[in-house]
């Protein structure tokens, strides 16, 4: 953990939707979740951000009672995870990474099935299904089998299936992975509306933009440990005063330029996915200026440069020392 603000202790007790202490889970020798503390206030969107294999899904599955933890304690909506799993189940809903729907059934039947399991009457279940289908823009597809749905429609139905009974906490495991930009925007709007109606949302994501867009607070997880937590702004501020971004006319010179910048500024240099720009933390504008001058002096053909606050992507890189895996 860097010099981030300490957990807000005034938010203790019943105002927390999730309170976890030292949650741990190993698979064989792999410590998938290695002692994670989490405090999620009620009514917030909270993002767990990390690359593939960081332990996000394992953490979420433990909190949703799908996986017993090896160590640690947690309460969800005031119910103890270990002592009262059935009470936890009554207060949560989970939408997994893969649409957990019956593909042979229609969208409407999927929702009625779940409503019946929750205890709705036959008529009540039908009414609930129709209301959710209408709100999620699926009325037209209600009588089609889910196997004929698009990815975005499936995800919407999957989230609707989590709202049969309004949950205290909604777990969303990578809610927009694999969706096209339009479908993603639509899911984002749904999540915001849900939070607006008072549902606490804990979502995992490997997209920094998603965490930045949706979440009030973000926990960054890597190798089963929490390496940082805060608001998007806090995380960016903790990374340093600013980032120097440099683009070259000749991409062939990127390696040499990266080495030079790293040497001058004393921080690792990251590059974007398209291999066209370099980004490096700079202690001050003067330092950045000097490094830039050295770069030009060394004969690098600088196309453009800028100095700015780091993106979450760069924050992640600064925290983990790895860029590639965090890039969507």
């Amino acid at each position: 953990m860097r010099d981030l603000p300490p957990p807000r202790l005034d938010q203790a007790g019943p105002s927390l939707a999730i309170a976890a202490r030292g949650l741990a889970k190993s698979f064989g020798t792999l410590r998938a979740v290695d002692g994670i503390d989490l405090e999620v206030p009620r009514g917030e969107i909270f993002a767990v951000l990390g690359p593939n294999g960081a332990g996000k899904t394992t953490l979420m599955r433990m909190l949703a009672t799908l996986l017993p933890p090896d160590g640690g304690t947690a309460t969800v909506m005031g119910h103890d995870l270990m002592c009262a799993p059935q009470a936890v189940r009554g207060a949560i809903a989970m939408t997994g990474q893969f649409a957990s729907l019956d593909e042979d059934l229609t969208g409407r039947e999927n929702l009625i099935l779940l409503a019946r399991l929750w205890g709705f009457s036959r008529r009540g279940a039908r009414a609930r299904a129709e209301a959710l289908l209408a709100d999620f823009g699926l009325s037209g597809a209600a009588r089609r089998q889910v196997k004929d749905y698009s990815g975005g429609m499936r995800r919407r139905l999957d989230i609707a299936a989590s709202l049969i009974v309004t949950p205290g906490v909604l777990f969303l495991d990578e809610p927009t992975t694999g969706l096209d930009p339009t479908a993603r925007q639509r899911v984002w709007r749904l999540i915001r509306r849900l939070a607006g109606s008072g549902v606490t949302v804990l979502l995992t994501t490997q997209y920094l933009e998603e965490a930045d867009q949706l979440a009030r607070r973000i926990a960054v997880i890597d190798h089963g440990r929490k390496i940082a937590e805060g608001t998007s702004r806090e995380l960016k501020a903790a990374t340093g005063s600013g980032f120097l971004h440099v683009a070259l006319h000749d991409p062939g010179g990127l390696d040499a330029a990266a080495a030079l910048l790293s040497e001058r500024l004393g921080h690792p240099v990251s590059r974007n996915a398209e291999d066209t720009r370099l980004a490096v933390m700079a202690g001050s504008a003067a330092e950045a200026n000097a490094a830039l001058a050295a770069l030009i002096e060394a004969g690098h053909d600088v196309a453009d440069f800028s100095m700015g606050t780091p993106s979450l992507e760069e924050v992640f890189f600064a925290l983990t020392g790895r860029m590639e895996e965090a890039t969507p």
């Binding site: 019946r116 709705f120 209301a131 959710l132 209408a134 709202l163 049969i164 009974v165 309004t166 639509r186």
Partner: peptide
């Protein structure tokens, strides 16, 4: 996402828990 009615997003409380047999029958219906 303009709602045709706010029903889906309105708070819906959990009905009385169904019996184990009712749960099993629901799965049978599936």
């Amino acid at each position: 996402d303009a709602p045709t009615g706010e029903t889906g997003f309105a708070r819906v409380e959990r009905p009385a828990p169904p019996s184990a047999a009712a749960n099993a029958l629901t799965f049978g219906w599936r």
